[in-house]
Design a binder for these strands. Structure first.
Lengths: 211, 211
DNA sequence: AGCTTTTGACTGACCGAACAGTCAGTTTCG
DNA sequence: CGAAACTGACTGTTCGGTCAGTCAAAAGCT
């Protein structure tokens, strides 16, 4: 199979997943998003499950790309960017978030899914930990914060934001605000707080309406 | 229908949901957990969806019972108890957590589900907010914490703990530890911290193994 | 009391739709 | 030409829901 056909099918899988959700999506739905027919999908992939696992692998690549790409002057800035990327900027793709949560909920029944999701989780934790460690080194973050604890905490919180957004429609932006305050208050040294954190947390009104 | 039959069916629904998961559970699976047959379920309920909604309503009653029942001397204690009830003590029922997450993920496609889940969310937020307000009044919690913000924050975090537990097998106890530390450090007044918070957060090793 | 009727609870057998997967045959391309 | 890519039609199964009929107990009647 050509790389073009592969990404085409994977892209179609993404669109179909967003349109119909994981629980309801059929091979026909996916085929409808390509210029191929259902049987051709079975020709290229061993089956529905195989295709969805391939989709998760594809997603992981784009995920890690997005993780490493966003920079920022200070570690705090990079943390804020991370929050924006994974909480705020995703407000326009609730269908995707929903499909992803559906897959997460299938994880206990499906080892392949679980393995992939663990990779996502690990990568995210690793990224946050790295940023926090950098922040401590450069003096932006308090010396006695535990990078492991903060990384796990942040990851859990982001999971909560996404779940609560999908489950009860709780606005991600609200959660992001609290999170930024947490970073400013608890992580940053008093010196760094005056420079970056407060300027971010107090500009919520503007951010919330323009994005 | 007698109240006995009703709770019998609802209990069967719970068991079947835990055994097979929401996505896979069939009316036959539920019937197998009762001494009735599939057709009898359709006699008592309009259909599968109707039954599951009734199950959520039933669950909400037990949920609110569990919310109000656990007391504690100080507000901090009551918050710790809440955490134990909804994070730690649920480690033995991962199948139920999974089914619940599956339902949460269906929420955007199903208004009846969403309404019920919003009730759960509201009740939890309300409970936490009440405890925090009490804590401020009695002097256990810092006067300048925002009860609304803390309540929303805690609710989001608990959602994250459950999602991450189901999705990637992350141990809830780990998250609970961080959360207890947060309460001790950020919420409690310095005076209260010495009394309750530290004694709790430092006894993690014991708690983790005995429960 | 003895009888018929009604009603609520329940069941086995069946139906139709949906869907993953298959396969024999056709087209495309190197 | 031959292999790879692709397709329409088909199959087997699963599952929610229906339906005609059973049964026992309550209600009504004489």
């Amino acid at each position: 199979m050509s790389a073009d056909t592969a990404t085409g099918i994977l892209h179609a899988t993404h669109d179909a997943l967003c349109k119909h959700g994981y629980a309801e999506v059929t091979m026909q739905d996916i085929a409808d998003e390509t210029d191929l027919c259902k049987a051709s999908l079975h020709y290229h992939y061993d089956g529905k499950h195989d295709l969805l696992v391939a989709y998760l692998d594809h997603l992981y690549e784009r995920f890690t790309d997005r993780l490493t790409e966003p920079a920022g002057e200070t570690a705090a800035d990079r943390l804020y960017n991370l929050i924006d990327t994974f909480i705020v900027d995703r407000q326009d793709a609730p269908a995707f978030q929903t499909a992803l949560l559906e897959i997460k909920a299938q994880s206990p029944y499906d080892e392949a899914f679980r393995n992939r999701l663990e990779r996502f989780d690990d990568a995210f934790v690793r990224e946050v930990r790295g940023i926090v460690e950098d922040g401590i080194e450069e003096g932006t973050f308090d010396g006695d914060v535990d990078p492991d604890a903060v990384a796990s905490f942040l990851t859990t919180f982001v999971n909560g934001v996404q779940t609560r957004h999908v489950g009860v429609g709780h606005a991600p932006e609200t959660s992001a605000t609290v999170l930024r305050a947490y970073i400013g208050d608890t992580l940053c040294t008093d010196l760094a707080t005056d420079e970056t954190a407060t300027s971010r947390t107090t500009s919520e009104g503007v951010r919330g309406t323009t994005e």
